[in-house]
């Protein structure tokens, strides 16, 4: 297990001055593993993701990615090392076509990781293939979600952070998204996703962490979470 650990986070503290948002957050993600980060809105899930890729004001602690310390690197360096980030609000480039959006994400192939091409991504998300020349701004929410994931995959990451991939999507689209995530997992990608939709998280995740007020309150397998009604009631309360 430990040999396959891709991302190892220890004692992560993050601040939006002057407020501290994260307190000693620690977790791991292995290759080919889907890990869910659960918790209420404001619990610190998005901040955790932004901390990992260097998009918050100040962070302290250890973030080891493929054995290397990345907590002092600028955002673009982190991405170039193969840590892909899909933001919660999709953030596709509305003026750019699907093809151009993918081009922005393109990075050179990396050893030992799947190399993605636009053609391979169109197989993963057939909807996108039909709209290569369409500007991102003229796509539906579900299509944009597919595009933003594809765009990150163009960087040939070995681990992907998915921030709330189901937010605001129709149930039917969420099911498609679950399929795609399982396919990515089959390619050997490690996936860390934050979710509010527990049903969706259950469908695809191997393990889960629960974040509450910036601290990790639970860690375990999905089966353990299923069994632990007290934890679910206390922190998720569905």
């Amino acid at each position: 297990m430990s040999a396959a650990i891709k991302l190892d986070v220890g004692k992560l503290n993050s601040f939006y001055s002057p407020a501290q948002i994260l307190f000693d957050v620690g977790f791991t993600v292995g290759s080919g593993e889907v890990v869910a980060l659960l918790g209420r809105n404001g619990a610190g899930k998005s901040t955790t993701f932004k901390s990992l890729v260097g998009l918050v004001g100040r962070r302290e602690g250890e973030i080891r990615f493929e054995g290397e310390e990345i907590s002092r690197l600028p955002t673009y360096e982190i991405a170039r090392r193969g840590l892909g980030y899909v933001p919660e609000d999709r953030r596709v480039f509305g003026e750019l076509t699907v093809e151009e959006n993918l081009e922005v994400g393109r990075q050179p192939p990396r050893d030992g990781v799947t190399t993605w091409t636009p053609e391979r991504l169109y197989e993963l998300f057939p909807n996108l293939a039909e709209m290569r020349k369409r500007p991102g701004g003229q796509m539906s929410g579900g299509e944009q979600q597919m595009l933003t994931i594809s765009r990150t995959l163009m960087g040939n990451p070995s681990l992907v952070l998915l921030d709330e991939p189901s937010e605001g999507l129709a149930p039917k689209i969420i099911e498609q998204m679950a399929d795609a995530i399982l396919k990515m997992k089959k390619e050997g990608l490690g996936i860390l996703l934050s979710e509010q939709n527990l049903h969706f998280a259950r469908l695809i995740s191997d393990r889960a962490y629960i974040l509450e007020k910036g601290r990790i309150r639970f860690s375990g397998t999905i089966a353990e979470l299923e069994a632990n009604e007290a934890v679910r009631n206390q922190y998720l309360a569905v």
Binding site: A170, P171, K172, I174, E175, A178, H199, F200
Partner: peptide
């Protein structure tokens, strides 16, 4: 068919 799907992702 058009919206709810298989009902896997809601309660």
């Amino acid at each position: 068919a058009v919206y709810l799907g298989e009902g896997l992702v809601y309660d």
